[in-house]
Simulated scan of single mutants.
Amino acid sequence: MTVSAKICGLKTPKTVAAAVAGGASLVGFNFYAKSPRSVDPATVKRLAADVPTTVRTVGVIVDENDARIAEILGACELDLLQLHGHETPERVAQIRARFGKQVIKAIPVSDAADLERAAAYEDVADYLMFDAKPPKSMANALPGGNALSFDWTLLAGRRLQRPWLLAGGLTPDNLIEAVRISGAPMVDVSSGVEDRPGEKNISKIKAFLDASRRI
Protein backbone atom coordinates (compact mmCIF):
# COMPACT_ATOMS: atom_id res chain seq x y z
CA MET A 1 0.00 0.00 0.00
CA THR A 2 1.19 3.51 -0.81
CA VAL A 3 0.03 6.39 1.36
CA SER A 4 -0.47 9.87 0.00
CA ALA A 5 2.08 12.31 1.41
CA LYS A 6 2.00 16.04 1.98
CA ILE A 7 5.26 17.95 2.39
CA CYS A 8 4.48 21.12 4.30
CA GLY A 9 6.27 24.34 5.13
CA LEU A 10 8.08 24.65 1.81
CA LYS A 11 9.89 27.91 1.15
CA THR A 12 12.31 27.43 -1.76
CA PRO A 13 12.14 26.30 -5.39
CA LYS A 14 14.56 23.42 -4.73
CA THR A 15 12.51 21.95 -1.92
CA VAL A 16 9.27 22.30 -3.87
CA ALA A 17 10.94 20.55 -6.80
CA ALA A 18 12.17 17.78 -4.50
CA ALA A 19 8.68 17.21 -3.13
CA VAL A 20 7.18 17.06 -6.62
CA ALA A 21 9.94 14.83 -8.01
CA GLY A 22 9.67 12.52 -5.01
CA GLY A 23 5.98 11.90 -5.56
CA ALA A 24 4.24 14.10 -2.99
CA SER A 25 0.48 14.31 -3.51
CA LEU A 26 0.27 17.70 -1.81
CA VAL A 27 2.68 20.55 -1.08
CA GLY A 28 1.99 23.00 1.72
CA PHE A 29 2.83 26.67 2.19
CA ASN A 30 2.58 28.25 5.63
CA PHE A 31 1.11 31.73 5.99
CA TYR A 32 1.29 31.83 9.81
CA ALA A 33 3.51 34.82 10.56
CA LYS A 34 4.96 33.39 13.80
CA SER A 35 6.19 30.22 12.11
CA PRO A 36 9.79 29.83 10.93
CA ARG A 37 8.24 28.32 7.80
CA SER A 38 6.14 31.38 7.01
CA VAL A 39 6.09 32.65 3.44
CA ASP A 40 4.27 35.55 1.82
CA PRO A 41 1.64 35.11 -0.92
CA ALA A 42 3.85 36.63 -3.63
CA THR A 43 6.55 34.05 -2.91
CA VAL A 44 4.01 31.24 -2.96
CA LYS A 45 2.77 32.41 -6.34
CA ARG A 46 6.29 31.93 -7.71
CA LEU A 47 6.83 28.62 -5.91
CA ALA A 48 3.52 27.17 -7.04
CA ALA A 49 4.01 28.15 -10.67
CA ASP A 50 6.05 25.02 -11.38
CA VAL A 51 3.86 22.62 -9.40
CA PRO A 52 2.04 20.31 -11.84
CA THR A 53 -1.73 20.04 -11.64
CA THR A 54 -1.35 16.46 -10.42
CA VAL A 55 0.07 17.82 -7.16
CA ARG A 56 -2.31 19.87 -5.02
CA THR A 57 -1.22 23.08 -3.32
CA VAL A 58 -2.25 23.80 0.25
CA GLY A 59 -2.23 27.09 2.16
CA VAL A 60 -1.84 26.76 5.93
CA ILE A 61 -3.60 29.47 7.91
CA VAL A 62 -4.25 29.94 11.62
CA ASP A 63 -7.38 31.74 12.84
CA GLU A 64 -7.34 34.21 9.96
CA ASN A 65 -10.13 36.65 9.14
CA ASP A 66 -11.87 36.80 5.77
CA ALA A 67 -9.90 39.82 4.63
CA ARG A 68 -6.57 38.08 5.10
CA ILE A 69 -7.78 34.89 3.43
CA ALA A 70 -9.03 36.92 0.47
CA GLU A 71 -5.68 38.68 0.28
CA ILE A 72 -3.82 35.36 0.19
CA LEU A 73 -6.09 33.79 -2.41
CA GLY A 74 -6.04 36.94 -4.50
CA ALA A 75 -2.26 36.78 -4.73
CA CYS A 76 -1.68 33.06 -5.28
CA GLU A 77 -3.73 30.15 -6.54
CA LEU A 78 -4.23 27.35 -3.99
CA ASP A 79 -6.20 24.13 -4.22
CA LEU A 80 -6.94 23.72 -0.51
CA LEU A 81 -6.88 25.67 2.74
CA GLN A 82 -5.56 24.01 5.88
CA LEU A 83 -7.06 25.49 9.03
CA HIS A 84 -4.60 24.89 11.84
CA GLY A 85 -5.97 27.11 14.59
CA HIS A 86 -8.98 27.15 16.89
CA GLU A 87 -11.53 27.43 14.10
CA THR A 88 -14.97 26.21 15.15
CA PRO A 89 -17.05 23.95 12.90
CA GLU A 90 -19.16 27.02 12.06
CA ARG A 91 -16.08 28.99 11.04
CA VAL A 92 -14.79 26.11 8.90
CA ALA A 93 -18.13 25.97 7.09
CA GLN A 94 -18.06 29.74 6.54
CA ILE A 95 -14.57 29.68 5.03
CA ARG A 96 -15.36 26.73 2.80
CA ALA A 97 -18.55 28.33 1.51
CA ARG A 98 -17.19 31.84 1.04
CA PHE A 99 -13.95 30.97 -0.72
CA GLY A 100 -14.98 27.82 -2.57
CA LYS A 101 -11.89 25.87 -1.54
CA GLN A 102 -11.66 22.41 -0.09
CA VAL A 103 -10.62 22.53 3.55
CA ILE A 104 -8.35 20.46 5.77
CA LYS A 105 -9.11 20.95 9.47
CA ALA A 106 -6.31 20.13 11.89
CA ILE A 107 -7.31 18.53 15.19
CA PRO A 108 -4.71 18.68 18.00
CA VAL A 109 -4.48 15.32 19.80
CA SER A 110 -3.03 14.20 23.10
CA ASP A 111 -5.64 11.66 24.23
CA ALA A 112 -8.79 9.87 23.08
CA ALA A 113 -11.04 12.72 24.18
CA ASP A 114 -9.38 15.01 21.65
CA LEU A 115 -10.34 12.64 18.83
CA GLU A 116 -14.00 12.94 19.75
CA ARG A 117 -13.81 16.60 18.66
CA ALA A 118 -13.32 15.42 15.10
CA ALA A 119 -16.95 14.35 14.76
CA ALA A 120 -18.10 17.98 14.83
CA TYR A 121 -15.95 18.75 11.78
CA GLU A 122 -16.83 15.80 9.59
CA ASP A 123 -19.81 17.55 8.00
CA VAL A 124 -17.94 20.80 7.27
CA ALA A 125 -14.35 19.85 6.34
CA ASP A 126 -13.21 17.88 3.32
CA TYR A 127 -10.25 16.36 5.17
CA LEU A 128 -9.24 16.01 8.80
CA MET A 129 -5.66 16.14 10.06
CA PHE A 130 -4.64 14.69 13.40
CA ASP A 131 -1.60 16.48 14.79
CA ALA A 132 0.15 16.31 18.15
CA LYS A 133 -1.14 18.76 20.75
CA PRO A 134 1.82 20.55 22.37
CA PRO A 135 1.89 20.33 26.17
CA LYS A 136 1.01 23.46 28.11
CA SER A 137 4.53 23.45 29.53
CA MET A 138 6.07 23.85 26.07
CA ALA A 139 7.19 27.46 25.66
CA ASN A 140 6.60 29.16 22.29
CA ALA A 141 4.80 26.14 20.85
CA LEU A 142 3.45 26.51 17.33
CA PRO A 143 0.03 25.22 16.24
CA GLY A 144 1.94 22.52 14.33
CA GLY A 145 5.47 21.62 13.27
CA ASN A 146 6.75 21.09 16.80
CA ALA A 147 8.41 17.71 16.09
CA LEU A 148 6.01 16.07 18.56
CA SER A 149 4.03 12.89 18.04
CA PHE A 150 1.08 11.37 19.90
CA ASP A 151 -0.12 7.84 20.64
CA TRP A 152 -0.87 6.45 17.19
CA THR A 153 -2.89 3.57 18.64
CA LEU A 154 -5.63 6.10 19.39
CA LEU A 155 -6.45 6.09 15.68
CA ALA A 156 -6.17 2.34 15.10
CA GLY A 157 -9.43 0.92 13.75
CA ARG A 158 -11.25 4.24 14.03
CA ARG A 159 -13.82 4.82 11.29
CA LEU A 160 -14.15 8.34 9.96
CA GLN A 161 -16.50 9.83 7.39
CA ARG A 162 -13.78 11.96 5.84
CA PRO A 163 -10.33 11.24 4.43
CA TRP A 164 -7.68 12.05 7.01
CA LEU A 165 -4.00 12.75 7.46
CA LEU A 166 -1.65 11.78 10.26
CA ALA A 167 0.78 14.51 11.31
CA GLY A 168 3.08 15.25 14.20
CA GLY A 169 6.64 14.08 14.64
CA LEU A 170 6.77 11.93 11.52
CA THR A 171 10.19 11.24 9.99
CA PRO A 172 11.59 9.00 7.27
CA ASP A 173 12.58 6.57 10.03
CA ASN A 174 9.23 6.23 11.83
CA LEU A 175 6.77 6.75 8.98
CA ILE A 176 6.21 3.08 8.14
CA GLU A 177 5.61 2.18 11.78
CA ALA A 178 3.29 5.16 12.27
CA VAL A 179 1.10 4.14 9.33
CA ARG A 180 1.12 0.49 10.37
CA ILE A 181 -0.17 1.37 13.83
CA SER A 182 -2.59 4.17 12.97
CA GLY A 183 -3.87 2.96 9.60
CA ALA A 184 -3.40 6.45 8.17
CA PRO A 185 -4.25 6.74 4.46
CA MET A 186 -2.46 10.10 4.18
CA VAL A 187 0.46 11.67 6.03
CA ASP A 188 1.87 15.15 6.55
CA VAL A 189 5.45 16.13 7.41
CA SER A 190 7.25 19.39 8.06
CA SER A 191 9.80 19.36 10.89
CA GLY A 192 10.65 15.71 10.20
CA VAL A 193 12.38 16.61 6.93
CA GLU A 194 14.29 19.61 8.25
CA ASP A 195 17.80 20.23 9.52
CA ARG A 196 16.45 23.01 11.75
CA PRO A 197 13.08 24.79 11.96
CA GLY A 198 12.24 26.24 8.57
CA GLU A 199 15.18 24.69 6.71
CA LYS A 200 14.14 21.67 4.68
CA ASN A 201 16.63 18.95 3.73
CA ILE A 202 16.17 17.67 0.18
CA SER A 203 17.62 14.25 1.03
CA LYS A 204 15.18 13.87 3.93
CA ILE A 205 12.25 14.85 1.70
CA LYS A 206 13.27 12.14 -0.75
CA ALA A 207 13.72 9.58 2.03
CA PHE A 208 10.30 10.36 3.49
CA LEU A 209 8.58 10.01 0.13
CA ASP A 210 10.50 6.83 -0.64
CA ALA A 211 9.30 5.41 2.68
CA SER A 212 5.69 6.31 1.84
CA ARG A 213 5.89 3.99 -1.15
CA ARG A 214 7.23 1.06 0.89
CA ILE A 215 4.21 0.74 3.17
Rank of each mutant, 00 (worst) to 15 (best):
M1Q: 10
T2A: 10
T2H: 12
S4E: 13
S4I: 15
C8M: 05
L10N: 02
P13L: 02
K14G: 00
T15H: 02
A17N: 00
A18K: 00
A21D: 14
L26E: 12
F29Y: 12
F29C: 08
F29K: 12
N30Y: 10
F31P: 09
F31C: 08
S35K: 10
P36I: 03
R37T: 14
R37M: 13
S38N: 14
V39L: 07
A42G: 06
L47D: 02
A48I: 10
P52I: 08
R56E: 14
T57N: 08
I61V: 15
I61P: 04
E64M: 11
N65F: 01
R68W: 15
E71H: 14
E71N: 07
I72P: 08
L73P: 09
L73E: 11
G74C: 13
G74S: 11
A75L: 12
A75D: 09
C76F: 13
E77V: 12
D79H: 13
L80G: 05
L80N: 06
L81K: 13
Q82G: 10
H84P: 01
G85V: 01
E87W: 12
T88K: 02
T88W: 04
P89F: 11
R91Y: 12
R91I: 11
R91T: 15
R91K: 15
V92Y: 07
A93R: 14
Q94G: 10
Q94V: 13
Q94F: 13
R96E: 06
A97G: 08
A97D: 15
G100V: 10
G100N: 11
I104R: 06
S110V: 00
S110D: 04
D111K: 00
D114C: 07
R117C: 06
A118M: 04
A120N: 09
Y121H: 05
Y121K: 00
V124S: 10
Y127I: 04
F130Q: 14
A141D: 06
A141C: 08
L142V: 04
L142Y: 09
N146I: 01
A147E: 12
F150R: 07
F150T: 11
W152R: 03
L155H: 00
L155F: 01
G157K: 05
R158F: 08
L160T: 12
L160C: 06
L160N: 07
W164H: 10
A167H: 05
G168F: 01
G169V: 07
G169N: 11
L170W: 09
T171D: 14
P172K: 09
N174A: 04
I176K: 12
I176N: 09
A178D: 10
A178H: 08
R180A: 15
I181V: 15
I181S: 02
S182A: 15
G183Q: 07
A184L: 10
P185D: 13
V189T: 14
V193F: 10
V193P: 08
E194Y: 11
R196Q: 14
G198V: 05
I202K: 01
S203L: 14
S203P: 00
I205E: 01
K206E: 15
F208Q: 07
L209F: 08
I215R: 04
